[in-house]
């Protein structure tokens, strides 16, 4: 399901006009991203947790050339599905 389909279905369910749904979704994502940027942990019940984690710098080796590279530290967004979501998808994922 791509973004268009997602918004279409969302507007249908909520009985919102398509344009308003788009706008609201944009606001939601802005809000999420600003919270995460501040380093906050976002917990959505029955869905999962978004958290920004710091990945340390490290040296990697290209196995074919043997070239070593220093990968800089970075902040990565991680998501961990809640047990409820995991349970639901375990069942339905095979279908």
């Amino acid at each position: 399901m791509n973004n268009k389909e997602f918004i279409a279905e969302l507007s249908q369910r909520e009985d919102f006009p398509l344009r308003d749904t788009k706008m609201l979704l944009k606001h939601l994502i802005d809000e999420i991203s600003s919270e995460l940027e501040d380093g906050n942990i976002l917990t959505i019940p029955n869905f999962g947790t978004f958290e920004v984690k710091k990945r340390m710098e490290r040296v990697v080796v290209n196995p074919s050339t043997g070239q070593r590279m220093l990968v800089p530290p970075r902040l990565a967004l991680t998501f961990r599905a809640s047990s409820a979501l995991r349970g639901n998808t375990k069942k339905g994922g095979d279908a």
Binding site: L28, E31, I32, E35, D38, G39, N40, I41, L42, T43, I44, P45
Partner: peptide, 9 residues
């Protein structure tokens, strides 16, 4: 670091 729940969101 603060935990944000859905209500705050």
């Amino acid at each position: 670091t603060k935990r944000i729940n859905m209500a705050e969101l």
